[in-house]
Amino acid sequence: MSNTSDISALRREYVAAGLHRRDMLADPLAQFRGWMDAALEAHPDDATSMTLATADAQGWPAARIVLLKRFDTEGFCWFTDFRSDKGQQLAQNPKAELMFYWRGLERQVRIRGRVEQLPYRDGETYFHLRPRGSQLSAAASDQSQAIDHRVTLEQRVQDLDQAHAGEEIPCPETWGGYRLIPHQIEFWQGRENRLHDRFRYTLVDGDWQLERLQP
């Protein structure tokens, strides 16, 4: 018996209504906000999950799921450990892409742009909004680094909790936020027979230009 799993015959059909140019707002952020609101209503637990794709100085790509924590006219923000793989890659190559996929709505959004660190106070403010357990985990973990055993990590968390019993957990200087400043945003709507609708906004000389892409 072959160990190869052939999944080429798997199919799913997309049945959502179409996406027309007249539906697309002039401002892609406003367009994104409308789609995000619909996703939050349909699947609130997963709506803010996004794939963050980065690449290091040698061009090796890496992707992982992170959570969008805010977005506005300045960009799309998330929080993490600066020492993590993604933090190191962004230090070497401060360009990235975000991707949202909302299966129930048959929609996808890709956002590409330059990335910058948020001010420390932004990270500190958000850090202290998190549950204490999440604060302890973030402060005790040297994210992405090898460790001998989970027990070691759990002991670090316990020691840190005891050291700050009855006190606020200090936000590490190695933990905080990033902002992706978009220069390209693509909206994808699944359609029947894979004839999907795709519209891409590109920032040119300060203005957003919109074009339809072939599927």
Rank of each mutant, 00 (worst) to 15 (best):
E173A: 15
E173G: 13
E173D: 12
T174P: 00
T174A: 12
T174R: 10
T174E: 09
W175D: 00
W175A: 01
G176T: 10
G176A: 08
G176D: 07
G176E: 09
G176R: 07
G177T: 10
G177S: 12
G177Y: 01
G177I: 08
G177C: 13
G177V: 11
Y178M: 06
R179D: 06
R179V: 09
R179C: 10
R179M: 02
R179I: 11
R179E: 05
L180S: 06
L180K: 02
L180F: 04
L180C: 06
I181T: 14
I181S: 06
P182L: 02
P182D: 08
P182N: 07
P182K: 07
P182E: 10
P182F: 09
P182T: 08
H183T: 08
H183L: 02
H183Y: 05
H183P: 04
H183F: 02
H183R: 09
H183C: 08
Q184I: 01
Q184V: 06
Q184S: 13
Q184F: 01
I185A: 01
I185Y: 01
I185V: 15
I185L: 12
I185D: 00
E186W: 00
E186C: 04
E186M: 04
E186F: 00
E186P: 13
E186D: 13
F187G: 01
F187V: 14
W188G: 07
W188C: 05
W188L: 08
W188D: 06
W188Y: 15
W188K: 09
Q189V: 13
Q189N: 07
Q189D: 12
G190S: 01
R191A: 14
R191K: 12
R191W: 04
R191I: 06
E192Y: 11
E192W: 12
E192V: 11
E192F: 14
E192S: 15
E192D: 08
N193P: 06
N193A: 15
N193Q: 15
N193I: 09
N193T: 13
N193K: 10
R194C: 04
R194M: 04
R194Y: 14
R194Q: 14
R194E: 11
R194H: 13
R194G: 09
R194P: 08
R194I: 03
L195N: 13
L195S: 11
H196R: 11
H196K: 10
H196Q: 09
H196E: 07
H196G: 06
H196I: 14
H196A: 11
D197S: 10
D197T: 07
D197E: 07
D197Q: 09
D197H: 11
D197R: 07
D197Y: 10
D197G: 10
R198W: 13
R198C: 05
R198H: 12
F199A: 05
F199M: 09
F199Q: 03
F199K: 05
R200I: 04
R200Y: 00
R200K: 10
R200S: 01
R200Q: 07
R200A: 02
R200D: 00
Y201D: 03
Y201I: 07
Y201N: 03
Y201E: 02
T202L: 07
T202I: 10
L203A: 06
L203N: 09
L203Y: 05
L203D: 05
L203H: 08
L203Q: 14
V204S: 03
V204R: 15
V204M: 04
